[in-house]
């Protein structure tokens, strides 16, 4: 990531006068926030207002049009693209990322998201909500301090929304950071809100 905080050690994530564009259009400018351990920020806005672009810029996958992003600590990303091989059974598709992350015991994450019964099902047969839960399990297995979540609740049923919300709560309760882009309401204590349209260019 570009830049790093002088106080090393504790995780943090911040945007400084950030502006991002998509194609020729600048979506937002002069956007600032800073998140310390245990803090979560909910980014709200209409479709196309730049929520996903902000998440991808914070992940370092897009270069900002102006301003900068800074982070300390490993970043985990959950977005629409679940990066699980559609031809493989879910268990094997998840196992690849477990090996990449050196995760030896994925059972906790599978249980928390109710995926044990689906391990033999090829990823392409999973429903939208099941895929989302699988991607969430993959994120949990990484045990990283910073979570970037792009529409984490879309496609989930009521029970799964409660599960994922509880997991986010647990993550920030344990000193993690979460940046959540969602047009849904999130029942999380201590959640800060940022309306991206206030920064529209």
């Amino acid at each position: 990531m570009q830049g790093s905080s002088p106080s090393s050690g504790a995780a943090h994530l911040s945007a400084n006068d950030l502006a991002c564009r998509r194609g020729d259009r600048v979506l937002f400018r002069n956007l600032n926030f800073a998140l310390a351990p245990g803090e979560a920020l909910h980014v709200t806005g209409a479709n196309g207002s730049g929520k996903t672009t902000l998440i991808r810029a914070m992940a370092g996958l897009l270069s900002p049009f102006a301003g900068s992003v800074a982070s300390e600590g490993t970043i985990g990303l959950l977005d629409e693209r679940i990066s699980l091989d559609p031809d493989l059974p879910l268990g094997k598709a998840l196992a690849f990322w477990e090996q990449m992350d050196g995760c030896n015991d994925p059972s906790g994450a599978l249980k928390a998201l109710g995926l044990q019964a689906l391990l033999d099902v090829p990823v392409r047969y999973l429903s939208t909500g099941q895929r989302k839960r699988a991607a969430m399990a993959s994120l949990l297995n990484r045990a990283v301090p910073i979570w970037l979540l792009d529409e984490p609740l879309s496609g989930l049923d009521a029970a799964a929304i409660a599960q994922v919300t509880a997991l986010i709560q647990l993550h920030i309760g344990g000193g993690g950071i979460a940046l959540i882009a969602s047009h849904q309401t999130l029942a999380i204590d201590g959640l800060q809100t940022l309306a991206i349209e206030e920064f529209a260019a």
């Binding site: 992940a59 370092g60 996958l61 990303l77 977005d79 629409e80 693209r81 679940i82 990066s83 990449m100």
Partner: peptide, 12 residues
């Protein structure tokens, strides 16, 4: 690319 595999690899 479509499945975001290179994004996830970059983050690792």
């Amino acid at each position: 690319i479509e499945h975001g595999v290179f994004d996830q690899l970059k983050l690792r």
